[in-house]
Write a protein that binds this DNA or RNA. Structure first.
Lengths: 151, 151
DNA sequence: GCTTGACCTCAAGTTTAGTTGAGCTTGTAG
DNA sequence: CTACAAGCTCAACTAAACTTGAGGTCAAGC
């Protein structure tokens, strides 16, 4: 069979649409892996493209690289992940995503439930209360803060 | 009627759940406004609580402060915003939110459409293509930086 | 065999969204 | 009227997620 060519950083960058520097960065953060040629250059197997695609999508919905890395740890180390593997990963994110989807819908639908309504008292607002729950867990400077996936 | 007491930073901080420093910061960024007492202390009108609540929710779903500020510019300057005002704002975000909701559902539902499927070729992946479209539209410094917009 | 472009490493810079701290002022409770 | 919590400003620090740059290596085309 055709030798399933390995990819250089440049090729991965082009095909995935992320900068070479970002790929280096992801690797340093343990999100992707490569092996080296005799000349110390990175070579990637094709499934890195999937990983990068997921990284991008997950990021776009506000999951931090640290959380993505944590999630990726459930993927097999030395085998190309199967559909099941990926699916498992997604279910791990399910609750978080469900919550975010709900919040987003509220925002989209006119913020009617809480902010657009007459409730001046923020305290009993359902939306806010959800946030508060989140806020309590959060410590450091989290950008788009997810609950600790279970710590 | 009761004189609708104005709020101090501390009170707003407590009621909204954000730190005083964050309120200062939002004010510096033009997201909220206050007037000052003779002794230079901030006083807020009650509707700042709504603004802050929206800021928090919008942030949680990944909208940057800059975008929120931009959106807030559609709100009346010297009048307490009405429900209509807030609603208008939310419709401005509708497309963005719709897109994000869709992406999030894909992630949640097992990433099956693209990443979990057999399509190795990222190029024609519907998910990726959506991202690309977004990237093309985006001008300002979006936090979740997508590809190089082309160049 | 040399040049040019893709790679390499490592350090430093950038942006967003705040927080922390120093030094000073206000205002309220006793 | 005085103490002391709460406010004020401004500068500096933090964290995440990258990018940029300097200085050097690798490899493919002419």
């Amino acid at each position: 069979m055709a030798p399933v060519r390995e990819l250089t950083v440049g090729q991965v960058a082009m095909r995935s649409g992320v900068a070479v520097s970002a790929l280096h960065f992801y690797e340093a953060r343990g999100l992707i892996r490569s092996h080296r040629t005799s000349g110390n250059q990175r070579r990637y197997s094709r499934d890195v493209l999937r990983r990068v695609a997921i990284i991008r999508v997950a990021q776009e919905v506000g999951i931090s690289l640290a959380d993505i890395a944590r999630a990726f740890q459930s993927l097999p180390e030395e085998r190309t992940p199967t559909r099941e593997d990926w699916h498992l990963l997604s279910t791990a994110w399910r609750d978080e995503l469900d919550h975010k989807i709900a919040q987003m819908k509220k925002l989209r639908d006119g913020l009617t439930d809480c902010i657009g309504c007459g409730c001046m008292s923020i305290d009993k607002c359902p939306l806010r209360n959800k946030e508060d729950r989140l806020a309590k867990e959060g410590t450091g400077a989290r950008r788009l803060v997810l609950p600790h996936p279970a710590e």
